[in-house]
Design a protein around this nucleic acid. Structure first.
Lengths: 215, 215
DNA sequence: GGTTCCGTTAGGGTG
DNA sequence: CACCCTAGCGGAACC
């Protein structure tokens, strides 16, 4: 990983158009070609570009340097007028993956083993079922053996109800799913979300009893 | 900004639970209290925490160091066993904001000045109008003076149709909006999105004639 | 390659 | 503080 502290201006064009005025910043150049420009605030870089493109360095007659990183659709140009420090360090590439717990995926797995958390008499008959307008997290049968499209979330907001509605709408036209209903199942369901769900006749459950596996 | 290259393990608990095994990484400590742990790949940090919390450094008898960053709801603990480098540098705090162009907000402004891009005879009567289930980007009148809730996007995908649907649903019950319809207006509307929009009787337009202001 | 959605989304804006 | 949405979202998974 190469770390530069430098005075620079930056122009990005691609998915949007952005620029940075001349200032002293940190420039990170990673082994995979990722480049990121940071200031002294916040988690996210000011400007950046993912690896995989071409990298061209040009030395100008006035002593400044221009870096151009480019791929099919994007261009990041950094004009460096003064370098305060430039260091190259190796960091580990192995053993460095993030281990997550309590993700939505794990919540989904847990619900398939504990379907009663969705409601009495529920059974799970499918996961990530393609509908033509996105995949339903869980397809279940309620106590009356009627199909239910369940959208699982850690925190459910308005979009979760939209998703559940969309899956019901898409599946309703399919053989055997004429009377399918929707449900939002989450550790936390927000008040406004509950209101929207009830207006749409989308059921909702606050999931009880789930705990991330202890480390 | 303080940059450490160090062997460390990391544990985060808060909005989720994550951890990193022992490895050599870069640790960024920003002036606003933000902390970020990077490896040699990708734009995003492996682990991180936003500034504003407390920072406590503890020296252990075995020579290692423990950093604990904590706020009301989150805890990030970094166990550092070996420091390969530790540098402190000042970068500019001024002049460092990102200047964007071609944002959705600007597109929205442009549409209020060029309402015919939404359709012949359209006029804009409101922006960011609160509905009780989110705010409509643009409220317009069509050539028949009927209200239209317009969701503006640079790229419209399924969620854009969901939003438009939700705003129509929310406004329909209000006096004077009984016959409101929905619309998705975007520079790019995807095929699947068009299908969903048409199924829902949500109109859609590919916005023509807009260009970000030249630098 | 396109589509879709999760994420400790981050960050901003508004009530 | 909570709610809601945008973002050059990034990144992964699946088609």
């Amino acid at each position: 990983m190469r770390i530069l502290i430098a005075d620079c201006t930056v122009i990005y064009t691609g998915r949007g158009d952005t620029k940075l005025k001349h200032a002293k910043r940190l420039i990170m150049l990673k082994k995979d070609g990722t480049i990121a420009i940071h200031h002294d605030k916040g988690v996210k870089p000011l400007n950046y570009m993912s690896g995989g493109g071409t990298f061209i360095e040009t030395l100008k007659s006035d002593g400044s340097t221009v870096w151009v990183v480019e791929n099919r659709k994007e261009n990041l140009t950094i004009h460096i007028t003064q370098v305060w420090s430039d260091t190259e360090t190796d960091v580990d590439e192995n053993n460095s993956e993030l281990i997550r717990d309590g993700t939505e995926k794990q919540l989904q797995e847990w619900l398939t083993v504990n379907p009663e958390a969705l409601g009495e008499g529920f059974t799970v008959i499918g996961k990530e079922v393609i509908t033509g307008a996105g995949a339903v997290d869980i397809l279940a049968l309620n106590r009356n053996s009627e199909p239910v499209a369940v959208e699982v979330k850690r925190t459910a907001m308005l979009g979760a109800v939209d998703q559940a509605s969309r899956y019901v709408e898409a599946l309703k036209t399919q053989e055997g799913y004429e009377n399918i209903t929707g449900m939002v199942a989450a550790l936390d369901v927000r008040p406004n979300t509950i209101k929207l769900a009830e207006k749409r006749n989308i059921a909702w459950v606050q999931i009880e009893g789930y705990t991330p596996s202890p480390s």
